[in-house]
Nucleic acid binder design. Structure first.
Length: 463
RNA sequence: UCCCCGAUAGCUCAAUGGUAGAGCGAGCGGCUGUUAACCGCUAGGUUCUAGGUUCGAGUCCUAGUCGGGGAGCCA
């Protein structure tokens, strides 16, 4: 059948049009006067369309007993609504009941549910206003990510999900193995012999596509990866997942300032795209979830990001008139309370913090001329905190190798990575943007587990 | 992993150590061009689990499980 999207019927079709709607019943209001009102949703938009079914329908008795969650196909005429609340409604000439939903057991009721409850019903929660809206916004963000980079001629690169490099330095890794856990092969020393494993060595799920994507950047120009990422950290917070999606652009013949400019343009593009294309959904979030979302998004999209050296930030924090749980000190990483103070109190807009102490950052970040800081950059936004982490990469072979040594890593594991510096090295830079944190920011959703379809977190891998 | 808080009807929540309730949802009836409609009636409970204190525990104590918030790690 050729379906009429409810969004089209509501927004752009003329009275008198014949429509064929298909979707799920949200609420039913039956009058004993011989007609029923069905509120129908098909996911194409936030709104439901009102279907008027009367007793002239041959199966009217069944229609009048529809309940929340039933699926139906409705054919009829789009007519002007005589009552307040909607421009148009559908006068049904046929209501085909496709699937019933037993009201005694169907978990989604036309009432408020907590997000904690709906997380246990993740397969059905997209039938609610909130999760339908989250899904549409997430889709819009993903489309905008590709648009932004494609329109700037960045090459989309698929970096591997499974990686054999066992020390990328970005957190705990999930091991990938086909060995028998009960009886793993052992080396003469009694260690598990991973040389007999599937890949002939230890392998893991990736924590970042950055090192691999640098190889494409250093031959094909500006590139980006966009895919799933895995961290085995025991993080139990509303901002962390064990499986999440990350966007990682890499730009060549570019330095940290170029990187920061790209990050700012990128975020503004994404926020503007959501405001322009998901108006109904964002309006819903602004009304029901976080009353500041639209103001914040608009403000961020229209204002210049602050650029601030780590060293200056520490000075600002030390002079601030407030008590810290952790007093700021040069050489320590900034605490969440510090980051939020800078972006929410001091500047009231996104802040790009740059040039962190080398001792607290990974080996691949470029050492600055002062010898004690690296060309790192974090973009901080209100409420979420760090949404982007990036850096200019160390392109000088000797400096890179000494940094690898200093962090007690094995140079031979990075032979291909250092080759990029050995042959035709170029200055380059990049960053990582957490997709879910971005969706959190634009929707105001407080818990990251509610902006990904099936969240994976410690002790939580249902569905 | 650490700190704090929580777990009672399908859902959202009440209940001084003394007979476990309400709203919503569901079923039935009434009413109505209705808007998460409205009115009435009915059904619906191992108060997370295991111990303990007490004449008596949803309530107090101990341990555990699960969930939420904060912190750390980070995107």
């Amino acid at each position: 059948m050729k379906r009429t999207r409810i969004k089209d019927a509501l927004e752009s079709m003329d009275v008198g049009a014949e429509v064929a709607l298909a979707g799920w019943v949200r609420t039913v209001r039956t009058s004993k006067g011989g007609f029923s009102f069905l509120a129908l949703n098909d996911g194409s938009c936030m709104a439901t369309i009102q279907v008027v079914a009367d007793s002239a329908l041959p199966n009217y008795d069944a229609v009048a007993h529809l309940t929340t969650g039933c699926s139906v196909i409705v054919r009829g005429e789009l007519v002007a609504s005589p009552a307040k609340g909607q421009r148009v409604e559908v006068k049904a000439t046929e209501v085909q009941v496709v699937g019933l939903a037993d009201a005694d057991t169907y978990p989604i009721q036309p009432k408020h549910h907590t997000f904690e409850f709906l997380r246990q019903q993740a397969h059905l929660r997209t039938r609610t206003n909130t999760f339908g809206a989250v899904a549409r916004v997430r889709n819009a963000v993903c489309a905008a990510i590709h648009e932004f980079f494609q329109s700037r001629h960045f090459l989309y690169v698929h970096t591997p999900i499974i990686t054999a490099s066992d020390c990328e330095g970005a957190g705990q890794l999930f091991r990938v193995t086909t060995l028998d856990h009960a009886q793993p092969p052992r080396t003469p020393e009694g260690q598990i012999d991973y040389s007999q494993d599937f890949f002939g060595r230890s392998s893991y799920l990736t924590v970042s596509g950055q090192l691999e994507v640098e190889t494409y950047a250093c031959s094909l120009g500006n590139v980006y990866t966009f895919g799933p990422t895995f961290r085995a950290e025991n993080s139990n917070t509303p901002r962390h997942l064990a499986e999440f999606w990350m966007v990682e652009p890499e730009i060549v013949f570019a330095d940290l300032a170029d990187d920061a400019d790209l990050a700012e343009q990128f975020l503004k593009f994404l926020f503007r795209a959501v405001l322009d294309r998901c108006g109904q959904d964002v309006a819903f979030f602004n009304e029901r979830i976080d009353k500041t979302v639209i103001d914040t998004l608009t403000h961020v999209a229209d204002s210049d990001f602050v650029r601030l050296d780590y060293t200056e930030a520490v000075e600002i924090l030390q002079k601030a008139d407030r008590q810290w749980d952790y007093p700021p000190a040069w050489g320590n990483d900034l605490q969440t309370e510090h980051e939020r103070f800078l972006t929410e109190q001091t500047f009231k807009k996104p802040v790009i913090l740059m040039n962190y102490p080398a001792s607290i950052k990974p080996f691949y970040m470029r050492l600055n001329d002062d010898g004690r800081t690296v060309a790192a950059m974090d973009v901080l936004v209100p409420k979420i905190g760090e949404i982007i982490g990036g850096s200019q990469r160390e392109e000088r072979l000797d400096v890179l190798e000494s940094r690898i040594d200093a962090q007690h890593m094995r140079k031979e594991d990075y032979w291909w990575y250092t080759d990029l510096r050995r042959y035709g090295t170029v200055p380059h830079a990049g960053f990582g943007l957490g997709l879910e944190r971005t969706v959190q920011f634009v929707t105001g959703m407080a818990n990251i587990r509610d902006v990904i379809p099936f969240p994976r977190a410690p002790r939580s891998a249902d569905f």
